[in-house]
Design a protein around this nucleic acid. Sequence first.
DNA 1: AATGAATGAGGCTTCATTCAT
DNA 2: TATGAATGAAGCCTCATTCAT
Lengths: 201, 201, 201, 201
Amino acid sequence: MSHNTDSETEKLIKEAAKKVFFSQGKIHANMQEIADEAGVNRALLHYYFRNRERLLLVILEEAMIDSHQVMIKVLTSNMSLEDKIKSTIDYMIDRFIDYPYMQAFIINEVTNNENSRLLHERHIAPFFNQLLEEIEKLIKQNNLAHKNSKQFLINLMSLMHYPLISKKIISNIFNYSDDEYKQFIMDRKEIILNVMLQRKN
Amino acid sequence: MSHNTDSETEKLIKEAAKKVFFSQGKIHANMQEIADEAGVNRALLHYYFRNRERLLLVILEEAMIDSHQVMIKVLTSNMSLEDKIKSTIDYMIDRFIDYPYMQAFIINEVTNNENSRLLHERHIAPFFNQLLEEIEKLIKQNNLAHKNSKQFLINLMSLMHYPLISKKIISNIFNYSDDEYKQFIMDRKEIILNVMLQRKN
Amino acid sequence: MSHNTDSETEKLIKEAAKKVFFSQGKIHANMQEIADEAGVNRALLHYYFRNRERLLLVILEEAMIDSHQVMIKVLTSNMSLEDKIKSTIDYMIDRFIDYPYMQAFIINEVTNNENSRLLHERHIAPFFNQLLEEIEKLIKQNNLAHKNSKQFLINLMSLMHYPLISKKIISNIFNYSDDEYKQFIMDRKEIILNVMLQRKN
Amino acid sequence: MSHNTDSETEKLIKEAAKKVFFSQGKIHANMQEIADEAGVNRALLHYYFRNRERLLLVILEEAMIDSHQVMIKVLTSNMSLEDKIKSTIDYMIDRFIDYPYMQAFIINEVTNNENSRLLHERHIAPFFNQLLEEIEKLIKQNNLAHKNSKQFLINLMSLMHYPLISKKIISNIFNYSDDEYKQFIMDRKEIILNVMLQRKN
DNA sequence: AATGAATGAGGCTTCATTCAT
DNA sequence: TATGAATGAAGCCTCATTCAT
């Protein structure tokens, strides 16, 4: 490959790793596959990230920060909570439709790697907890069936993330092409909002 | 371990594999870890299942059939659709709360292994499709926000499976003990039903 | 290779490692060279010894015990100290002429590896210290030039071990064949004793 | 590091290499460790010495010449042989107490590397042989127990070099601090001379 | 002269799998 | 049926070396 200056190569490698893990869902991918995707020598991955775990931690942390950013941008705005939720769903799906397996990667890492769990505890957990109170009000005001804010949040996450993770499953069941799957996901922006807020058609 | 007769050992190994993959979520588990869990020699796994892929395919197929059975039992009954859905949720959660990562395993296998995808196509996909029509009616009768039966089904799956897959994530965010997590999931039986059918509190 | 029963293979590997390190002096030898010498697969070395360091520690410990044994056998006998020293020299040279680089291996390991140093501290150091007193008397009775027992011991070790370690150096300087070198070493049995006890011809 | 002119850097690198190999005894040291010691970039070592083997050969040759010089200076003087030997011991110990592992390095190189052996054959071997005759006389005149000049020389080398090589071993056995070890070595100047010439206290 | 980036070769180790019993 | 021993392939990582600047 052409010689990149500065830390362009570092970025290149991270993008390659994200493509492999987040886009393609190859959870067992080895260093060679990532190097191939980046078009660089395998040893270069160690040059920049020392070892496999660190590379994974780096892209994991960036993935967490990405998720975080999306939500921060929306939730710190002046919108009503309902609009915030709507925007979150819209942004989230737009941003991660190309990285359908990102959440699966996060789940797997947090489940199996203590360092990853700590990262999650630091980056994501506190953020969630600060939302709970506001959501609690929304539920009570509208007598929503989610019962409490924690269940509400998990329901929201479920409806957003699961269909991404399940790309192949969904395509397999409904015999979807990539485009049909993408449309199916895009349609969900409205659906998720209405289901979450329990609005009927 | 005590000498088992017949295919007791085969079952023992399968149970061990399920424990490792479905209960513990160790998606990268190797043959040794499964053998250790079963308390048998590593070579014995090959004796019964020839190779790693076949062992995984076997427990994958059983997992699919299990899911299938749960739904069949309910859906071929005389209940109303609403009761069917309620029963499905109840059964599903009761049956798989001890195998929280089963669905993650299925998703990963279907995503990364062609043979697994074919298995899914054969066992699960046709079953889903036969539900669509009945659900379509329900949606129209109640003006449900899910819009169409496919989205309805995916929403249902999302709300059932995602919180199981995310056991560690949820426990990490809300600082849950195992018991608290379990209660959180049990509470969802009612919540999922109400959210799906858009009933308010 | 033919399949050995029990821990024959383990011994085989240890012997191979000793040959490589102690006989041939290949201090940089890798696992492949040892496996080749043993005529077994490289992975088998890990099967028996887990990793390189452990294999080296095992043969190091055996080398230390060997040295120890040689001296114990002699020094706990009823002989006069002079006879003990004579016997030690004789045994030592007979035993280790085929392992000329054993002492170099020990020195290098103790110098560069903390675990090896601890092994030395446990196995060898205490043994030496228990000799000091007896030697002290000998020196005084004979007005020996070694001055004190510690210097005496180090002189003895120097005269025994250095010419073994320096096999190639000596052969190179004096243009010795293997047989001539061996004779040169054998001649030293008497010389070392006389030099140590300061007897003249 | 500050920019050195000319071959100052070359010297710097050689000194670093000598420190690592001769002072610290790190026989497995890699290029990075030497570069770190010198405070320069790893690639610079290749710029000056092309490859690892050449760098090692260069410092090996300088080490041999150093040893050589020490002996030449003494042995070509007008002193009596006894005084020459005394001076050699004194000089040798003074010069190499800071490079205790130099001789170990030489031995190892000559043992394992043909080019190093050739260097030794060229630089050191002829020098030794020219001493033999003179020593032979000394032995006969004094009925020394060394029996012949070759054994005499090897005994002298053993008593000089082995305690240096064994720095860690000796410190470990006698629980010596660095200063105590140094004193132990300094005391040997007199001892070695007396033992070699078989003078009693 | 000096360095950061990049690479190929090789070393250690793990692992699925097979063999022999 | 069950297992300890053995192997080949592959994975991670290190390292000497080279490249480009």
